[in-house]
């Protein structure tokens, strides 16, 4: 009986693991110009939008995309977000950052600001808006003390929606947009011990966004 139960649990966990590891990512890209070129010594800066407290873009998502862009083939010069925000203080804070290219144009009329941007050799600003959240969950797990452990089953679905807007600092224009949507389901079966089988929604959304930005700029 115990052997049958062990086999059943083993097959269930493998099956759920396969399903849980699957995420679906849909990417949509819109270019407003074909003249997109990033010089060897030029940089990009990746910034999260955080002006609405309920829909802030996570710091770890921005650093994940930045890390992906600055490594591997066709790597890009990416200025770390916090370093950029501190050195440009207070003009790119969540409450003061330019919301459109016209406001950026106005900002760079100040010589001290344009000098800093020139020092960084920035060609493109990439503003990322969106976040990852749990959109559905069901099931329950109860844990009793002692050797009985936990028993139950929980399931939840995460959704990551992000949009990157790419601004060209040289022409003061919007170069394009990249929209990614990723969904995945995670499971938590518990027979004595809870075994989390997680869908890596945010990290898959990060991979998808970084790959698409590289294609866009190369």
């Amino acid at each position: 009986m115990i052997i049958y139960l062990s086999k059943f649990l083993f097959i269930l966990i493998i099956g759920l693991n396969i399903v849980a590891c699957n995420t679906i990512t849909v990417i949509d890209e819109h270019k407003t110009t074909t003249d997109i070129q990033l010089g060897d010594k030029e940089s990009i800066v990746l910034l999260g939008r955080r002006h609405l407290s309920q829909h802030e873009t996570e710091l770890d998502y921005i650093s994940c995309v930045g890390k992906q862009l600055s490594t591997g083939e066709e790597r890009l010069n990416v200025i770390p977000e916090q370093q950029f925000l501190d050195s440009m203080y207070p003009y790119f804070e969540s409450s003061t950052a330019p919301m459109d290219v016209q406001k950026l144009d106005k900002l760079i009329q100040h010589p001290n600001i344009s000098k800093k941007l020139e020092d960084y050799k920035i060609h493109y600003f990439i503003w990322i808006e969106g976040n990852t959240k749990t959109i559905d969950k069901s099931g329950a797990i109860s844990c009793a003390g002692g050797p009985a452990g936990c028993f139950g089953f929980a399931i939840w679905e995460d959704e990551a929606i992000y949009e990157a807007k790419i601004w060209d600092l040289k022409s003061i224009s919007v170069t394009g947009k990249i929209h990614t949507e990723t969904q995945g389901t995670s499971f938590l079966p518990a027979v004595i011990l809870p075994i989390p089988l997680l869908a890596h929604v945010k990290s898959d959304a990060c991979d998808g966004m970084a790959t698409q930005i590289k294609k866009f700029l190369n």
Partner: peptide, 8 residues
């Protein structure tokens, strides 16, 4: 603990 602002 805040950064030094850009002078304008």
């Amino acid at each position: 603990d805040i950064p030094q602002p850009i002078e304008i």
